[in-house]
């Protein structure tokens, strides 16, 4: 069952069709997921724990192999790409992990410089340094440049991880529970930062969250995953006013 509460269909930058993934014969997580994201659009993916939200975005970047379906990014199917094509597309996608996933053995500056040194060999060291400082300034953490990830708070780690993805100037951002484990104020700061990134970079986003305040603040569209498919989608206001009892459960205080 798929109920569309609003229908907006400009040329999608991400188009997921019939995505299926199972972990063993009795655990089919995604059962034909369909989702479209337009350029500059920000889609919040809600769903209960274990409903397959993270699996869906991990399939998008090739971290998990999908069983069937198609994931078209910039009109190219990610599931049938060669490893080289996949890597080229990955450079256009920024992924913020739930745990921030900063490299523990590197300083903040080395964390940010790591992808840049590999993918932009034409840049001089001073240009790399400038890009690192610019990215850190955009998340308001220039002071942390020489710190180790272990010296940072949860919120700071998330912001540094955002800076690390921004340094490659991605056109698509995927956020996996960006505000989980953070206090209300820090969550709001992270949400504001996500909005700023969308405005500054005109990037499209898929945001997985359980934080309704973050969903309301950052999403142009909300989609709720149920039984392996998108059960309902629309604007935050439309979805929150849905009469479906299982949708209402998400919005009860």
């Amino acid at each position: 069952m798929q109920t569309e509460l609003s229908h907006k269909d400009p040329t999608p930058i991400i188009s997921i069709q019939g995505l299926a993934k199972s972990f063993g014969p009795e655990n089919q997580v995604l059962k034909g997921l369909n989702l479209k994201v337009a350029k500059g659009e920000s889609v919040v993916l809600l769903g209960r724990s274990g409903s397959g939200k993270s699996v869906a975005i991990k399939c998008m970047v090739g971290l998990i192999a999908a069983d069937s379906g198609s994931i078209k990014v910039f009109d190219k199917d990610m599931l049938v790409m060669s490893p080289q094509q996949l890597n080229e597309t990955r450079l256009k996608i920024g992924f913020l992990f739930q745990s921030a996933a900063l490299y523990d053995s590197m300083t903040v500056a080395e964390n940010l410089g790591f992808p840049l040194r590999r993918h932009s060999p034409e840049l001089s060291e001073s240009e790399i340094d400038n890009s690192i400082k610019e990215a850190l300034e955009s998340v308001g953490l220039l002071d942390a440049i020489q710190k180790m990830p272990s010296d940072l708070s949860g919120g700071m780690r998330k912001r540094i991880a955002m800076a690390r993805t921004l340094i490659l100037k991605p056109e698509i951002m995927l956020y996996d529970e960006p505000t989980t484990g953070l206090d209300t104020i820090t969550s709001r700061e992270i949400s504001d930062l996500m909005l700023k990134i969308q405005e500054d970079h005109q990037s499209s986003s898929i945001i997985i969250t359980h934080d309704l305040a973050c969903a309301k603040r950052t999403g142009n569209k909300v989609a709720i995953l149920k039984d392996g498919v998108i059960g309902v989608e629309g604007t935050y206001e439309e979805v929150s006013k849905s009469n479906l009892p299982w949708v209402q459960d998400f919005f009860i205080d």
């Binding site: 970047v61 990955r90 490299y103 991880a161």
Partner: peptide, 20 residues
């Protein structure tokens, strides 16, 4: 221990996603 910890904290995934 080092690689195990990197795997568990998604650092290896982060590397892969950044096309390394």
């Amino acid at each position: 221990a080092e690689l195990g910890s990197m795997k568990v904290t998604e650092q290896i995934d982060a590397m892969e996603v950044s096309a390394v």
